[in-house]
Amino acid sequence: MSELAQDRRWLALTPTLMAIAGVVLLLLPLRLFGGYVPTPIIPLAVIFFWSLYEPDLIPYPIVFLIGLLQDFLTGGTVGVWASVYLFSQWLILQQRKYFLGREQHVVWLGFSITVVVISIIIWLEQSLLTRTLLPYTASLWQWVVTIAIYPLLSIAFSFLHKRAIMEEE
């Protein structure tokens, strides 16, 4: 029984650990396909998926800390990613009722819309911080890759999610 409880505690950490792994992937010199394909922003997909299906496992403070970790490790302005991730979670939780139980391509569309909103916020925030109007298209490719990889990630996450649920029941 106690072993089960311990298992459950570990499974509750799954989304947090996945998001941290996503942050570390953004730091590694992966250079996919000779550097032509940017690293997808996996933490955003983690936050989207788990906020939708199991928001209790990824509370606001955890999302804030993940964003903060990314800010510090990528050397950017502290607070940018933290605020963006928090905002995206808020956005998803607002629309949660609509997306729960929908088909996967509808959820994918939801993720795409979230990514578009987030990309515009990041673009505006970075333009303000550098005090120049940055070209929006400079980061477009990375967002496209992030959207494209979501179906694959969602299959992997739903497998982990099922495990977490089964252990709980």
Partner: peptide, 15 residues
């Protein structure tokens, strides 16, 4: 040795 390359929108740095 380059052990890290930050690949997020609008940020370009290496570790």
């Amino acid at each position: 040795l380059v052990i890290g390359e930050v690949d997020t929108p609008f940020q370009r740095s290496m570790i």
